[in-house]
Design a protein around this nucleic acid. Structure first.
Lengths: 180, 180, 180, 180
DNA sequence: TCGTAATCGAGACGGTACGTCAAGTCTTGAA
DNA sequence: TTCAAGACTTGACGTACCGTCTCGATTACGA
């Protein structure tokens, strides 16, 4: 079936790594696809052969951030508490601006938005739904997800600072309250 | 002493209006500064004379969305409920994608980010702080602000849909709980 | 008759002087009308009130270079020799690039070309014609003028250097030969 | 090793041809680099990839006018006569204004001037030098060049008309006289 | 002496071109 | 068929300058 020269092993990962580095260093608008190719040591066409647009490239680079296994503390409240901590970590430190750029990447690009939703949002929402049904909670997983990640995201977008303990406490309380 | 020809009355507003229309119609990446000038009926230089970059222009256009007077229902819970409704409206309908584009405009542009924070975030946070101190609530205004707008923002960014009643209810409950 | 505020005395000359300085310093394309106004200490409109375009302005500045009185050595050969020396001086030193810019100013501007021809070329040609008729020479004044100034102009345009003695000698010989 | 996609064959010539046409039709200031690209059927970037500025572009377009092979009539006088006729043709007709624009292009652009001197002036001067040494003439080639082209250039710059027979005769006589 | 009117410096105006940059596509020869 | 290299078209960016216009202030002359 497959004829011709096979794709260079590791090129995919080299490209995505380059994207992540440039993203944290200069932001979405601060680097070009050419920069990515140069840094990854490949030709530009090799990037476009794998992902159709710059936005798709960035989404792919960010999607590789694993959602992680479910907490499994035994109680619903404990699991939610663990989730809040995990989300706080995701919106802090180096990943902070990267997540911000992810949103920038999707502006005016429906395909990138769809890819982001499918690869990044859906798994997390599904994990939350599984957790709720496991503990017989009638709460809407989508609402809980917004309540969980929204405040951290807002803090990030408006002040570009790491979340503080007061915010963590408030989010935890809101989440446990909403889950009944 | 002599101050030269005064700026054309209404040009500022004509430009900002054009930006808002183009923003809702085509998104941040979907129009050029030239389009703005043409639509506003001014020269391109007249746009750059007022705002240095496209990002700053968009921030200014969005900042003009008035924060509005405080609700004044008499009770803290009532006022918070009104605030939630107002926020829901801001993140629904035509303004939805505009707000999204605002965030896109700030990607990788620290100056635009600072302007956004100063002109858009600070007034809303201040209004919230005034409301809390008026009712002797010890809650942190910044936290309340994140709790109020964050979930709507997250819903918008991840699904690009209008917020539903379930989300409104959850946010209201979380907010009243956090304000003690 | 004349009503209203009279034009500021000396402004004309201040402007033309500024033009000449900028011309020698940066060349025709190297300064703007605004630079001229600033340097002359007047408003931009005061420049445009006197000359309609930048090209006309430059032509006026250069036209002020006086053609000078006829030599009057007694013999035709002597007068021609004096004219060559005078022309050599005009195409040497500081005026060198200014003359070059004069030609640049007229590119694609028929009005400027006409003004240049009328104010700059015609007087010199007329002086030459008078000299020839005085000495009963049948030579064409236009041809003599081309023979006189052309070689110096060509040297200037092609090498941007001052004319040397060899060129002066050759031009003198050619001129005396052509005048019969 | 790998040398990438080769430049489109004929694009250089298509661009230079477009420049020449626009030059004769509208003059140096009468067309934009974008006009050139459109007329040549290439992207604007393809023009800038080859020549850095509009001035350099025009110089290149004019330099392509071949200097032509030496006359070869057998005698020095005959060869000079032929050269005068050839020069007259260069400063007449359609090329007239183009040559004028060439000079405009170099105003205030030392790089363009250098390119012009190297590509346009030097070959002609060298051909003249070869002719003189072949016939054992002690005359300075630079002086002869000025004497040959200068009068035609002056006629062009001052009157924007084609050279007449009187001028041709005078130049021929001057040239033969100067060559001894 | 007072109003009319042209001038002044300053600077905004609409327009147009400049030269730069990036996106995404295409084309070469080598592997 | 993939690879690296690099040319290709397209179109926005932000800057500069042109020649015009409009402001408030100034300065003469004539009623």
């Amino acid at each position: 079936m497959s004829r011709g020269r096979p794709r260079t092993a590791g090129a995919d990962e080299a490209i995505l790594t380059a994207v992540r580095e440039l993203l944290t260093a200069h932001g979405f608008a601060g680097f070009s696809v050419d920069d990515v190719a140069t840094r990854a040591g490949v030709g530009r066409q090799s990037v476009y052969r794998r992902w159709p647009t710059k936005a798709a490239l960035v989404v792919a680079a960010m999607s590789a951030i694993a959602a992680g296994a479910p907490p499994g503390t035994g109680t619903l409240a404990g699991d939610l508490r663990a989730l809040v901590q995990r989300t706080r970590a995701a919106y802090a430190g180096a990943q902070r601006s990267a997540l911000l750029d992810l949103h920038a990447a999707m502006a005016g690009d429906p395909a990138a938005r769809a890819a982001f939703e499918e690869q990044f949002v859906a798994p997390r929402r599904a994990a939350l739904a599984a957790l709720l049904s496991e503990h017989d909670s009638p709460a809407d997983p989508a609402v809980l997800h917004d309540l969980l990640a929204g405040p951290f995201l807002h803090r990030l977008l408006t002040t570009d600072t790491d979340p503080d303990d007061a915010l963590v406490g408030a989010v935890t309380a809101a989440l446990i309250g909403a889950a009944s």
